[in-house]
Design a protein around this nucleic acid. Structure first.
Length: 587
RNA sequence: UCCGGCGUCGUCUAAUGGCAGGACAGCGGACUUUGAAUCCGCGAAUCGUGGUUCGAAUCCACGCGCCGGAACCA
């Protein structure tokens, strides 16, 4: 059952189409959601007597990813369309060979993290095994199911294919008594794995291959993560899923498009069991994202072959990975609400996800300064022992977010990328003879460049304008460039992990070769010896900040007080990079 | 090739027989103590061919294209 300690706050999710219902925003374009329209229409005509129940039904055999988030946001959002609407969390745990409690726990943590609350409605398909079995006997008694005792290959071979009808099993016409006897023997463990299966008796010649006497039970003498050794027959998906929906009283069973081929069978079972108010299955298009793979098999492979550090590697599209990367749940939910819900098999530009991320982080992240690739900058006219403490806003244009004091002294660190010996056109940053603003501190002019024997710049010698404290010159002259800096004697040394997209190809799974051929070799760059502003000392893991002019970062769980570790969540947009690219092309 | 689903700006998505709109991306400009943010502006689409209609993205017919389906997986 759900953890009673953590009664998440009543999640204030807007209902799935809140904006469409407000007349003020009637004219604003809203993303489509045909599932919500169906639900509203059903509600409006009283199809369910006012009841509304959806469910999120993961199989606990892997970690949740951004594609699941779309389904979670949809299902929990739909539940808000009626006053008494609810959404259940149900584990579809019918295959003990692949499932485990590790996944049961991570899935719950991830759904909660997104901000959703299933109340006391935490369910398991495995809790329904007794009811499912009783129903199976009922179907046998009605002559709608039979035990087939041929081997797997024979059954497969007689199913036919797209072009040829299947052949009836010779066991199709066993008597009810014999079927019951065999089914009970299966259940009692008297038959070996593979020796028998229970099949629905539908139509071996149906054009819908799913209706060619589908399997209901198979024998697996494998312990289950919840039921242990109690069962040695386990229901197949089609036999378990719709019936689980019916047991819970689900009104709208929303699933992805690949299950549309199961729709007729879903309805067949419910009808055969004479379920009075059967749930309605509705299929929508699953999420695909550019530069991303979302298939469970591929994610599993990335983990097992060590291409990433684990399911929660910050480059993974898993919710655990995104959390560690520094994503906010709000950004993910907002993204899912904005992409719309349709039956199109589309690929959403990962840029839209990044946009939502930046938008939320921009509004909520405290700013600090940090230098990732330091060069020393010495203020020749600044007294050796002097210090200034400048007050900077934590978040610009949000006075309520407060300010912080940042120390300034004679020897500073600045970013290597912010200096060029020969400045191109439109370069507003440091260069010999040029004046720039040190953000929030003062104007400085670069007088001298010191290089080592190989010609690497090792130090910039500058003079500061004492009349420009805070960054505003006394005479009002305009200084275009502003760069970030850190006082050397106050700096916090940190490791910074620069993450980028895991794949370099827009569609990693297309084209020649496998998706692994498209791994981005630069998806992770670890920088040691980065210099952060004093404020960064002792930040708790999970703290999100913007390193000004660089991007958004989050304190990683690997941090210690002595050795902080920051992950780059995402860079800021960089219009200079575009200009530089153009200049490069022209040159 | 059989069954099913789907085709609207580069991408996602509106328009439910009546002016093809929004968002992201792109491009241009303003502003700027983050080359960020913000603001303003620009370009950009109905898969094709017929038909019905005063009027079609929408209805009909025939094509074409993409995706899914022949697990004792979900």
């Amino acid at each position: 059952m759900s953890d009673p300690k953590k009664t998440p706050e009543k999640s204030p999710r807007p209902d799935a189409r809140a904006a469409k219902q407000g007349d003020a925003r009637q004219d604003e374009g809203q993303p489509g959601n045909f599932v919500a329209e169906i639900v509203e229409a059903d509600l409006a005509r009283g199809a369910t007597g006012g009841r509304l129940m959806t469910r999120f039904p993961p199989e606990p055999n892997g970690y949740l990813h951004i594609g699941h988030a779309k389904s979670i946001v949809l299902n929990f959002g739909l539940a808000t369309l009626a006053p008494e609407g609810v959404c259940n969390l149900r584990f579809d745990d019918t295959n003990p060979e692949t499932e485990s409690t590790e996944y049961v726990e991570s899935i719950q943590a991830d759904v909660r993290w997104l901000g959703y609350d299933w109340g006391d409605r935490l369910y398991y398909a495995s809790d329904y095994f007794p009811q499912l079995y009783a129903w199976a006997e009922k179907l046998v008694e009605k002559g709608l199911a039979y035990v087939d005792t041929r081997d797997e290959e024979t059954i497969r071979a007689t199913r036919g294919d797209f072009h040829t009808p299947g052949e009836d099993s010779p066991h199709r016409d066993r008597s009810v008594e014999e079927n019951l006897k065999l089914l009970r023997a299966m259940k009692a463990g008297e038959l070996e794995e593979g020796a028998a299966v229970l099949r629905a008796k539908i139509d071996m010649k149906s054009k819908d291959l799913k209706l060619r006497d589908p399997l209901m039970y198979r024998i697996k003498k494998v312990p289950h993560h919840r039921t242990g050794d109690e069962w040695c027959i386990y229901p197949m998906y089609d036999w378990a899923h719709g019936q689980s929906d019916a047991i819970e009283g689900v009104t709208h069973s929303v699933c992805t498009l690949e299950f549309i081929n199961h729709h007729a069978l879903y309805d067949w079972f419910l009808e055969a069991l004479e379920i009075p108010e059967p749930p309605k299955q509705i299929e929508f298009g699953r999420l695909n994202l550019t530069y991303t793979v979302l298939s469970k098999r591929k994610l599993q492979q990335l983990v097992s072959e060590g291409h990433v550090a684990g399911w929660d590697d910050p480059r993974m599209p898993t919710l655990a990975g995104m959390r560690r990367r520094g994503f906010t749940p709000e950004a993910i939910v907002r993204f899912c609400e904005r992409i719309g819900v349709s039956k199109n098999d589309g690929v959403v530009d990962v840029g839209l996800l990044e946009h939502e991320l930046r938008e939320h982080l921009n509004a909520t992240s405290r700013r600090i300064m940090g230098v990732l690739d330091p060069i020393k900058l010495v203020l020749t006219n600044y007294p050796e022992d002097q210090e200034d403490w400048f007050e900077l806003e934590n978040i610009p244009k949000q006075p309520e977010a407060g300010t912080r004091k940042v120390p300034f002294s004679k020897v500073l660190w600045v970013e290597r990328d912010d200096f060029m010996k020969e400045a191109p056109k439109k370069w507003w940053r440091l260069a010999p003879g040029k004046e720039v603003r040190l953000r929030g501190a003062a104007l400085v002019t670069c007088d001298e460049v010191i290089e080592d024997a190989e010609g690497n710049v090792v130090e910039l010698r500058c003079t500061w304008d004492p009349e420009s404290r805070g960054g505003t010159p006394a005479d009002g002259r305009k200084v275009r460039g502003t760069i970030h800096w850190v006082s050397a004697k106050h700096a916090v040394d940190a490791e910074v992990r620069l993450y980028d997209r895991l794949f370099a190809a827009e569609n990693p799974s297309s084209g020649e070769g496998g998706f692994l051929d498209h791994l981005n070799p630069k998806s992770l760059e670890v920088r040691e010896g980065c210099k952060l502003e004093a404020t960064a000392r002792g930040m708790a893991p999970g703290t999100r900040v913007q390193l000004e002019r660089l991007g958004y970062f989050v304190v990683d769980a690997d941090s210690t007080d002595a050795a902080p570790v920051f992950n780059r969540t995402i860079t800021l947009k960089d219009s200079w990079a575009k200009i530089a690219k153009k200049l490069g092309k022209k040159g």
